[in-house]
């Protein structure tokens, strides 16, 4: 102990550790990208099987200028938004009903829990018979994918609210409706956000599957058509576009979360 005290204590100046770490995160993807590019140029990879990133970017630029990329992108986004809205709102409504009202719980929850066991992507053949291969198929698939996570997380979000807070709100003179507004909704919001995140993921996946089924427009159609003409660069471009859309939706969600759930990271937000 005394030996330690003999030495002067070195106090390191504070350094922005976090921002340095951020940069480190980008290293691995960049190295992989460079290796991919180098692999194609060096002849290690067959450009017909996997075109170089630069080729994919060039193709993307060309299709964007032609306007086709934007058109297909818009098709896909429209289907996703419509499906998420329909499935999400339905999940929200039924989840709220089952979470708040005992009768709703009895009537809705067991059925939904059973239906959840059905892999909804396996419904494609049946859905084709029911609604055909057009827009309704894609939108229905996305809606189905989005419904379950939103329903489940709305339900559990409401159920897991601290009963003591509801009781305290009652002693403050809040009516039932006011308690829903001031306690139940904000209390269930974190869980709902989780549901939306899962719904986005399930929705994208459903869209990808739905767009592989014959039809017109959308990124999936673009990819399937490109495959027939062996335009591997367009196929990869489609994948990249899907990934970027997923990334963008996640970003938007995070933004919303930061605003609406500020109280959770209160210490940092102020």
């Amino acid at each position: 102990m005394t030996a330690l005290l003999d030495r002067p204590v070195l106090v390191k100046p504070a350094r922005p550790v976090v921002s340095r770490r951020r940069w480190l995160r980008a290293v691995t993807p960049l190295v992989l990208l460079a290796a991919w590019e180098g692999g194609v140029r060096g002849g290690l990879l067959d450009p017909d099987k996997l075109p170089a990133p630069s080729t994919v970017i060039a193709t993307g630029w060309r299709l964007a200028l032609e306007g086709t990329l934007g058109e297909y992108l818009l098709d896909s986004v429209q289907r996703a938004v419509l499906g998420l809205l329909i499935g999400g709102l339905l999940g929200l409504a039924l989840g709220t009903l089952a979470g708040l009202v005992r009768l709703g719980d009895d009537l809705v929850d067991p059925t939904v829990q059973m239906a959840r066991m059905l892999p909804h992507l396996g419904l494609v053949p049946l859905l084709i018979i029911w609604v055909g291969i057009g827009e309704s198929l894609k939108v229905t698939l996305v809606a189905l994918g989005a419904f379950f996570p939103i329903y489940l997380n709305t339900f559990s979000g409401i159920r897991n609210i601290d009963e003591r807070l509801v009781e305290a709100a009652r002693t403050c003179g809040l009516t039932a409706l006011e308690r829903v507004r001031h306690v139940v909704v904000p209390g269930a919001l974190p869980s709902l956000f989780l549901g939306v995140r899962l719904a986005f993921a399930a929705g994208w996946l459903s869209l990808v599957v739905g767009e592989q089924v014959n039809g017109q427009g959308g990124l999936g159609f673009m990819m399937m058509e490109a495959r027939e003409f062996s335009q591997t660069d367009v196929v990869v471009l489609g994948l990249v576009a899907y990934a970027l859309l997923g990334l963008l939706s996640d970003l938007l969600l995070r933004l919303g979360e930061r605003r609406l759930l500020a109280w959770r990271h209160g210490l940092r937000a102020r």
Partner: peptide, 23 residues
């Protein structure tokens, strides 16, 4: 009015809004 053993403040409302709740 009631004061419980735990404060039972709503975590999503700032202090002033918690005090004003239902007033």
């Amino acid at each position: 009015a009631v004061v419980f053993q735990e404060h039972r403040l709503l975590p999503w409302k700032r202090v002033a809004a918690n005090v004003a709740l239902g007033v």
